[in-house]
């Protein structure tokens, strides 16, 4: 188990302890523990409804959680304990913490009224308070990196799904987050557009970006991840190195899951 890693000299970038999350009476996360080192790529897999997207969304507080603790870079995310009481952070603090993580969504969620360049600069200008010329230069650097510099003045409606997703990744990564979250970023794409997005993510992984992914692209997960986490019914069933996990699954549920997956 990876818990032993936390005992080493470098503290975990992300540590999740005993995370509980329910929608009303339905408990979707039933005590999740996970820790990630800086520069690691961790992929969450599991059948739909297993809680992997919810777990990802708890990390930047797009979902509230009712129990447990999430720490990112030594800071409590969302809530902190004050004299035995659980207190939600003020909105400003939460917004600052959210800026420490970047997120790419399944549906891209680009701002349709802003050009590709403006989508990327918005956070730089309004959250990072960067001067305009600096923000534009940085945004252009990242748009070039995802291969879309010449489309910087196009609006989302004028871009293909794959291009929109690459702009969305540039928007998130330009904020210089310590952790990138990818939530099924290729699930809404036509099959021939999946490759261009995956190769962008792969490039980021090679640069040492810390990433937490949810994906159904098993071959990609196998190639890019340092650690695979298999979730089942709101719990982590099994985790480990991709080779070990895919080739010698210990739990019956994971073996069953892998049997039904095409690589």
């Amino acid at each position: 188990m990876t818990h032993t890693q936390t005992a080493t000299a470098t503290p975990a970038l992300l540590s999740i302890e005993g995370l509980h999350k329910s929608y009303g009476a339905v408990e979707v996360l039933k005590g999740v523990d996970l820790s990630m080192q800086r520069g690691n790529v961790v992929t969450l897999i599991g059948s739909s409804g297993s809680g992997k997207t919810t777990l990802l969304r708890c990390v930047n507080l797009l979902e509230e959680f009712q129990g447990g603790r999430i720490r990112l870079d030594g800071q409590d995310i969302g809530y902190s304990e004050a004299s035995g009481k659980r207190v939600r952070h003020p909105e400003k603090v939460i917004a600052q913490h959210r800026a420490m993580t970047g997120m790419a969504f399944q549906q891209f969620n680009l701002f349709p009224h802003l050009s590709a360049l403006q989508n990327v600069t918005l956070g730089l200008l309004k959250v990072k308070k960067m001067p305009k010329d600096e923000a534009v230069a940085l945004a252009e650097k990242w748009l070039e990196r995802v291969g879309l510099l010449e489309r910087r003045n196009h609006f989302p409606g004028q871009l293909s799904g794959g291009q929109q997703q690459r702009v969305a990744i540039a928007r998130a990564i330009a904020m210089n987050p310590s952790l990138m979250l990818f939530d099924e970023v290729t699930s809404a794409l036509d099959p021939e557009l999946v490759g261009e997005v995956l190769s962008v993510i792969k490039g980021l992984a090679e640069d040492g970006m810390t990433m937490l992914l949810v994906t159904h692209e098993m071959r990609f997960a196998y190639e890019v991840s340092d650690q695979i986490v298999f979730m089942n019914q709101g719990r982590i069933e099994e985790q480990g190195h991709p080779k070990e996990l895919f080739e010698r699954p210990k739990s019956a549920r994971l073996a069953e899951f892998l049997k039904n997956i095409r690589f």
Binding site: R98, A99, T101, M103, F105, L122, G123, V127, M175
Partner: peptide, 11 residues
């Protein structure tokens, strides 16, 4: 997703 994307970049 629009509000979520705004939140995600720290707005």
């Amino acid at each position: 997703g629009q509000l979520e994307a705004g939140k995600a970049i720290g707005l």
